[in-house]
Structure formats: C-alpha cells, structure tokens
Amino acid sequence: MQQQERQSTPPVLPGQTAAEAVPERPQPLTPDTIPDPPPAPRAADDTSALTAEEAADYAACEKAIDHYSQATWMYGKALQALQAIRDARYYRQEFPCGLYAAARDHRRADRADGVRH
C-alpha cells in the first residue's frame, strides 16, 4: 500500500487569513539578483545607517554566500560519491569490463544532445 504524503499547513494567527499564513516560497538565486560592487569602497569609519536599497543588496549578498556554501558542500559530496562508485565498483554489473567513466561520459554527451537513457 502506498502511503500518502501529508502536507502540513502553517498555523493561521489571529487577524490573519489562510492565504497570509502560507510561507513565501524562496526565490531562486540568479546572477541578476546579486548586486554589483560599488564603484569605490566606503570609508572604514562610515557608520551611517543602511538605506533600504543597501539593506536589500546586503540580504542578496548574504543569500549568495549561503548558496555558495551549500553548492560547495554538494560538490564535495558528489566527489565522495564518485570515489564510492570507483572503490566499491558499483558499476560492475552494468560495465563488467570496468569502463564506467567512459560510459558515464558517453551518457552525459548524449544528454547534452537531448538523448535520454
């Protein structure tokens, strides 16, 4: 029997509609969402309050840094997966002659050409 996936609904606070209770979906990180550096660095002794635009740019920069950390971690895990495949020879049934890397690269090239395996 297939178990149905239950979705939790966020609680509706007093004075809030159900639509307002739905959490905002995170927006994707794209190059155009990351601000360009200023033309010149601010003075080190500048302690003025951030403008609304600067605060938004700061949040976008922090998001980009967090995304980079996650992507770097995933890249490291992918390298560990490749090592596990190689060392445990998980490909041995599909590629008994040991040409896993060549076959993987061939499949990747086919995917780039729109061919699905």
Rank of each mutant, 00 (worst) to 15 (best):
M74W: 13
G98F: 06
V12K: 10
M1V: 12
P26N: 01
Q16K: 03
P38I: 02
P28C: 05
R107E: 13
D36T: 07
L99A: 14
W73S: 14
L79W: 09
D87V: 09
D87H: 13
G114R: 07
A112D: 06
A55W: 01
I85P: 02
P37W: 07
Y91F: 15
D110P: 00
D32G: 03
Q93A: 14
I34T: 07
C61E: 06
A43G: 12
A55F: 04
K63C: 03
G76V: 01
T9Y: 10
E94L: 15
T33S: 15
D32N: 11
L50N: 02
A49S: 13
Q93Y: 12
P41S: 03
D87C: 09
A112Q: 12
A44E: 10
S48F: 02
A19M: 07
A40G: 02
A60L: 06
E20D: 10
H106G: 08
R89W: 05
P41A: 05
Q2T: 14
Q4C: 07
A81W: 05
V22P: 04
D105E: 11
D105Y: 07
M74L: 15
L50V: 01
D66N: 12
Q2V: 15
G76C: 10
A56G: 10
D105V: 09
A103G: 00
Y58I: 00
A44Q: 05
Q93M: 11
I85G: 03
A21R: 06
E53N: 07
E53V: 11
D57H: 15
A109P: 00
L50C: 02
H117C: 08
E20L: 06
A103V: 07
Y75S: 12
M1H: 11
H117P: 13
Y90T: 15
Q27F: 01
D45C: 04
R42Y: 04
P35Y: 02
A71P: 00
P14K: 03
Q93W: 09
P31E: 05
P28D: 08
T30C: 05
R104M: 15
W73Q: 13
R42E: 05
M74H: 12
C61Y: 04
A59C: 03
R116H: 12
H67Q: 09
D110I: 02
G76A: 13
P26V: 03
A102E: 15
P38N: 02
Q16C: 06
R107C: 09
K77M: 15
C61H: 01
T72G: 00
E5P: 03
A52K: 13
Y58V: 00
R6C: 06
R116F: 10
Q7W: 08
Q27D: 09
F95L: 02
D66T: 08
Q27S: 12
P26K: 01
C61N: 04
Q80P: 00
A60E: 04
T33D: 04
Q3C: 06
S48M: 02
A19Y: 04
P41W: 03
A101V: 11
P26D: 01
L79Y: 07
T72P: 00
Y100D: 07
A43V: 05
D36Q: 11
A88E: 15
T17R: 12
A102I: 13
T72I: 01
P26F: 03
P39Y: 01
Q70D: 10
A101M: 08
A40E: 14
P10Y: 06
R86M: 05
P38F: 03
R104D: 06
S69A: 15
A19C: 01
P96S: 08
